[in-house]
């Protein structure tokens, strides 16, 4: 019985500690964004890593999601003779939900795990401690560039995903399912607003922050050698994905 309570207490304390540390890191990282020297090269490197190198995987997921959405909604809408609504369905779901969320999930899997591993290895091999001894603030040197990269790259990746998704849906709808191309585009333009795209982009800002922050935190506080590094990578992905989905719900309920 006592053990049970102890465990519960420990869990609560850990949760609070983790949250607190995360916010501390966030506060420091954001603070250092505005403090020179800016180390642009460092930031650009991270942007390339998070953004450019995720492009392929994001295009792949985006186009296939759009295609499968078109196919599924066509089956459902055909029963009402409303095939013309396939375009809006695909475009709206991509712009509002699937674009930002899928992009964020893919980036977490690709870049988040890599970040956590990298930082974790640095921590385990005492490179971070070495930075301290060289009077270089590791948060500024390692974490700030990553968070800036996440914040700036995720929206752009999301826009690309949206676009590619609509193209994929168009391809399936028009060439495979014989929907009139004019109707497809026309309806899509009719139903989708600029706001829909902008909501998705706004969401992706938050997702970019969550991904990089969680990954950096997990890597930065790695303990326990090679095993710990592995655990950090896993945690970065799992916690990141869960937080993305939860915050997606919260953001949606606030925005719509």
């Amino acid at each position: 019985m006592r053990e049970l309570f102890e465990r519960l207490g420990r869990m609560a304390v850990t949760a609070v500690t983790v949250t607190g540390n995360m916010f501390l890191i966030l506060a420091q990282a954001v603070y250092f964004i505005f403090i020179p020297p800016y180390k642009l090269r460092n930031i650009v490197k991270q942007m390339e890593f998070v953004g450019v190198k995720s492009l392929f995987v994001v295009i792949l997921t985006g186009s296939f999601t759009g295609m499968v959405l078109a196919m599924q909604s066509f089956n459902a809408l055909k029963r009402f003779g409303a095939e013309s609504l396939v375009g809006p369905t695909v475009a709206l779901s991509m712009a509002r939900e699937l674009g930002p969320v899928l992009t964020a999930l893919m980036v977490t899997g690709r870049a988040g795990s890599a970040m956590a591993t990298e930082l974790g290895t640095m921590r385990v091999t005492e490179q971070i401690d070495a930075l301290y001894t060289m009077a270089i603030n590791p948060v500024k040197y390692l974490i700030t560039p990553r968070i800036v990269a996440g914040l700036s790259m995720l929206p752009i990746l999301t826009v690309i995903t949206d676009f590619v998704g609509v193209i994929g849906g168009y391809f399936v709808g028009v060439t495979l399912l014989n929907i009139n191309p004019g109707v497809y585009i026309g309806r899509t333009v009719d139903f989708v607003n600029v706001d829909d795209i902008m909501y998705g982009v706004t969401k992706s800002f938050f997702f970019g922050l969550i991904i990089t922050l969680v990954a950096s935190y997990q890597g930065f506080y790695t303990t326990g050698g090679a095993e710990g590094v592995g655990r950090a990578a896993t945690n970065a992905v799992v916690v990141g994905c869960v937080l993305i989905l939860v915050s997606d719900y919260i953001l949606t309920s606030i925005m719509f």
């Binding site: 650009v44 942007m47 390339e48 475009a91 752009i156 990746l157 826009v159 609509v166 795209i197």
Partner: peptide, 27 residues
């Protein structure tokens, strides 16, 4: 270079965003 890649990437993203917004909203 890394800069050039990021630059092209950002450029493409912005072009797409503007294109979609114009297409959809007729701004």
């Amino acid at each position: 270079s890394a800069e050039a890649k990021v630059g092209i990437f950002v450029f493409i993203g912005l072009i797409l965003l503007v294109y979609m917004s114009l297409r959809v909203g007729g701004i």
